[in-house]
Simulated scan of single mutants.
Amino acid sequence: MRQHIIYLLAAGLCLAACQSKPADETSPKPAAPANVAAKVGPLSITEQEVNDRLALVDEDDREFAQTPIGRQNFINILVREKLSELAAKEAGVDSSDTYLSALEDKRNQLKEIYDDFAKQTLVRLWEQQLEDSGKLAVSDEEISAYYKKYPYEMTIKQIIISNAQTADQVLRTLKRSPSRWKEMERQYSVSPQMARGKEFSFMPGEFLPEIEVIAANSASGSVQGFIKTAQGFHIIMKTREKRLSLKDAAPRIRAILQAQKEDAILNSLKNKYEVAVYEKNE
Score class of each variant (00 low, 15 high):
V190H: 02
A259H: 08
K157D: 05
P204N: 13
S44F: 09
P178A: 06
W126D: 06
A65V: 02
T67I: 04
H234G: 00
Q260S: 04
E63T: 14
Q258C: 05
A137G: 05
Q66M: 10
K82I: 01
K111C: 05
L244T: 00
H234F: 06
T166M: 11
A65M: 04
E210D: 13
M154I: 11
A137R: 12
K119I: 14
P68A: 03
A118M: 10
F64W: 14
N217I: 11
Q258T: 13
R2T: 15
A102F: 09
S162W: 03
P209C: 11
R243N: 01
Q66V: 05
A91E: 07
D248K: 13
I6V: 14
I253R: 00
L43F: 06
S245L: 01
G221W: 02
E63F: 12
K106D: 10
E49S: 07
S220P: 03
Q260R: 13
A118P: 01
A91N: 09
N73E: 13
V50R: 07
L100E: 00
A264M: 12
C18N: 05
I256F: 13
S220I: 10
M154L: 10
E59N: 13
G12R: 06
E183F: 07
E183C: 04
N51Y: 06
D94P: 02
S95N: 09
P204K: 14
I156P: 01
K111D: 08
L13R: 09
E241W: 07
A34Y: 09
E112C: 01
A38E: 05
K135M: 08
A31H: 08
M237C: 04
N271M: 06
K106C: 03
R71W: 02
S96L: 11
Y150K: 00
E104M: 12
N271E: 08
R186Y: 04
N267H: 06
A167Y: 02
I75R: 09
S177R: 07
L15K: 15
V93C: 05
I77P: 03
E212G: 03
Q3W: 12
